[in-house]
Amino acid sequence: MTTLMERICMRGNLPLRILVAILVVIAVLFICIPLVALLLRVPQTLLFASLQDPVVLDALFLSLVTASISMVIVIGFGTPIAYINARCQYPGKKIIDTITDLPVVLPPAVAGLALLMAFGRRGLVGQYLNLMGIDIAFTTIAVIIAQVFVASPFYIRQARTSFASINRVYEHAARTLGASPLTTFFSITVPLAINGILSGAVMTFARALGEFGATIMFAGNLQGKTQTMPLAIYGALQGDMDASLALAVILVFISFAVIIVIKILTEKEEAVP
């Protein structure tokens, strides 16, 4: 008995291999061609000039910092939900599971308006924060909140699936040998689920980096404070298209670099046994 994977990766069966190769090439080209077109369209001099433009540097810095913070927050608050929903049965579990998915369905601009109605100075919660002198809308914190709201489902979903797929025998063994539940979680569960956790975190980071609609509504658009890369790109698009495309290329390259670094760092975990 051979698995499908073995047939494709190791053995002969030429027609099947050719078919798979064609499908793979089409899929990769489909993603690469628009990116290459973008790259060819942008004059390289403009690319380097953009990298010295303070507007671009501000936006790039702000994007990387906010997306990283958002990712850390999502991991912190999302991991317990993902774990509980993967392991425990409790009333209303399906509802909680669905609620955590909802931000994906909501159009981002509507999500931004909803955040304003919740945390704006006249908002459901915001009006009380306002009385305490806390103002969130139009600040960098609002940028992070918008990103966390929109990007959290990507992590929670992925982490939940990984936790659910772990063989619990290992956890039981650790517990029998006297490890505390927390030690078991961090030294057994997390390492076993690390691939899913990391890929979920990367997706969340990428989604946060690309966030536009919720940010523009809830955080506004101000250079150095709330103007992230997507906002700068959209702004430039209405004036100078080449400048805007240069920014987009920079964003694509930075995202690519960040994601590939994470992939390389976790490569050994991914090796097929």
């Binding site: 304003l116 100075r121 523009i216 658009n221």
Partner: peptide
């Protein structure tokens, strides 16, 4: 005093409508 430079009138009117 500018808190946001909006890329569309719709965003600007929305910011006013919610009193933000």
């Amino acid at each position: 005093n500018v808190v946001s430079e909006d890329p569309a009138v719709t965003a600007l009117v929305a910011h006013l409508r919610v009193g933000e």
